[in-house]
Simulated assay, not measured.
Amino acid sequence: MNLSNLRLFLRIVEKGGLAAAGREVGLSPASVSERLSALEHHYGATLLNRTTRAISLTEEGKALVAGARRLLAEADELESRVRLGAEKISGPIRISAPEDLGRQKIVPIVDAFLTENPEVVIDLNLTDGYIDLVGQGIDLAVRHGSLADSSLKARSLGTNRRIVCAAPSYLAAHGTPSHPNDLSTHDCIVMRFGQNLDREWSFLVDGEQRSVMVRGRRIANDGGMVRQWCRDGFGLALKSVRDVEDDILDGTLVEVLGDFSAGTTGLQIVYPPSAVQPRRVRLLIDRIAAAFQ
């Protein structure tokens, strides 16, 4: 069995096609197809159903994806220990994180980690949308909210308060809302999550949770863009306090409606339930968790 063919097979699954996988690793579609055929011949089973438009895993292919990831993780761990010694780590780590939180909090941790471990390669995917960790071969992701996929494992990074904030220039021009109902007269910057718009903002009013529909002329699927528009005085935004804490401290943004809690969300590291996790991934998870403590 050729481990490089297993790696290529996983790349085909992650990229959703033979040609895309080939471009990623510098192989022609014909070479990729030949190596996939060799892998299927080795196992005596069809691993992928292929049409002109898409591929899908067979049951045997699904079983191989899980087993290949465990096997390759063990092989990487063994190579790292033999080649570099028990104290050094090497190899790739694929990470996903929200746009704004990723740039402000995760990137500095990653930079320090890379400086200390020169044999490690980081592949960072910053997105506020949903990403399939298992399907795309992501080693770990930092996510807000509850864990939707119960097959994943999670490590808590604590709670994350959400606040409504605005630039002093916006408040000077349009006034400061004193009650959530006042938001109907304000320009609110709205976050898009995939096909869904976050127009329904939740508040604690008279001891009860209430939702307020907001409107606004600016909508973005990038938390960093929402923050920047807010900093520029274009409207009110509902943001994670971790995303804007520096802006609040230096006065660039001001929290409003502080008497009406906008709620909290969980913040966590999630990762696939592999029986074997490379040491480099475990160490980075520990580093991120320690930083958020």
Rank of each mutant, 00 (worst) to 15 (best):
I163K: 09
L72G: 06
E40R: 03
N125F: 12
L236R: 08
I138A: 01
F292A: 07
A154C: 04
N221C: 13
Q195E: 12
F260A: 04
G194A: 09
N160L: 13
S240I: 03
S150K: 14
R199A: 12
E79M: 07
L253R: 08
A167V: 00
R227A: 14
V82K: 10
R161N: 08
S31Y: 00
Q293V: 04
V270P: 01
I285G: 09
L18R: 10
V256A: 07
L126W: 13
L47A: 08
A75Y: 08
L64S: 07
R199V: 13
D187K: 04
G175N: 10
Y271S: 05
G224R: 15
L249R: 15
R7T: 11
A45M: 01
L8Q: 05
L48A: 10
R23Y: 00
A291V: 09
D250R: 05
L171D: 00
I219D: 02
R50N: 07
A167Y: 04
S31I: 01
G216H: 06
R287V: 02
L249H: 14
S56G: 11
L204T: 13
D76A: 14
A21D: 03
D100Y: 07
Q293S: 08
R210W: 07
S146A: 15
L133D: 03
V190R: 07
S33C: 04
F113K: 15
N49F: 05
K88P: 09
F113Y: 15
H186A: 12
L8I: 02
A97C: 04
E245H: 06
